[in-house]
Design a protein around this nucleic acid. Sequence first.
DNA 1: CTTTGTGAAATCCTTCACAGCG
DNA 2: CGCTGTGAAGGATTTCACAAAG
Lengths: 206, 206
Amino acid sequence: MARLPIYLQVLLSATEVGTTTVSSDELASGAGFNSAKVRKDLSHLGSYGTRGVGYQVAELTAEISQVLGLGDDRPVVIVGVGNLGRALASYDGFARRGFRLVALVDADPALVGTEVAGHTIEPVARLHELVEERGIGIAVIATPAAHAQAVADAVTAAGVTAILNFAPTQLEVGAGVTVRRVDLSSELQILSFYEHLAAQFPAATG
Amino acid sequence: MARLPIYLQVLLSATEVGTTTVSSDELASGAGFNSAKVRKDLSHLGSYGTRGVGYQVAELTAEISQVLGLGDDRPVVIVGVGNLGRALASYDGFARRGFRLVALVDADPALVGTEVAGHTIEPVARLHELVEERGIGIAVIATPAAHAQAVADAVTAAGVTAILNFAPTQLEVGAGVTVRRVDLSSELQILSFYEHLAAQFPAATG
DNA sequence: CTTTGTGAAATCCTTCACAGCG
DNA sequence: CGCTGTGAAGGATTTCACAAAG
């Protein structure tokens, strides 16, 4: 259900505008797919729509948030405070959606002790301790690829069950741990492929 | 073919280690899926493997790079030089994989004229001109959601055919333009869901 | 004996189309 | 009437399993 967060976004912007009900058609165009898919997806959560009317924005927002486990703000650690880690630490989108950054960790002794986005950077050695003490369940790995596996091992050993991996490498984790990988240069390469196509066959649709 | 870049990564790390041939099994475990899928994927590119041996790392790397249109370095513009834009501008992964950052653009007059990662930030008004002059085909949008559509309109009007969108919004673009969306808080929300599950049913596998 | 390449089977995902509710 | 909820159809993708090649 990788689409629920997108519905949530559409619902949030509907709330801002003051809309109180949305149809599957409106959700679909806001989210970028078709209405049948929206209804199928939402029907898996139970029956929250009213025929002839649509869905209550507030009710559906609450339901999706609950399914996603949002609301009770979730402590997150960012490991690796390079350019990307720093940007993520300062990114207010996390805070606005129910996540709370509670620790920053880096291997570089020159960075440890300095402050970024209101957090003092901690050494890798304290990772286990921090995860346990602060009840961290989600870790963001923004280290170089070579260190990513060691970090994953450390955080999962300490109790983290969900990892967002920005390092361009495949992580091995035990059962019960979920990894999502975001690979920025892969994304560009895929685009490159389409641009390549577009340049060769200007008639083709991406 | 969103998996080709991942194969490419595995191949690159194989090259670093000095391996000259890989089997579909090795590629599969490096990439995180199974060998049948790898072989199906690679068979679409043509027949580059040797039965009983595997694939030549160098040959396959060249072939995938060519299909993805890499090699002839591709000019990229980043629009929006906030935390994320700045991190992307400094991210060396792009340069190392055949992309060349040729312009930075921001709407904030206070930023225009300042230097980031060796590039002088240009005003939004020059966007069209920059895209045409510098032959830019790929744009990275790292602006707030409210401005993303206007930027997309501007760059596609100027000839960009591929967009990497970090703004949490659905972009409308004409035919022939490809958009890929990377939504960091969606990723965290999806993880949140799995962590939520793991916390409730410790036995279940992610 | 190992590993590719590939038809066939199985599975998953999307879209259609419409009955039924409000 | 409008819109949801959902079986059924249609596509696409993944996996199986094995023949053929080195």
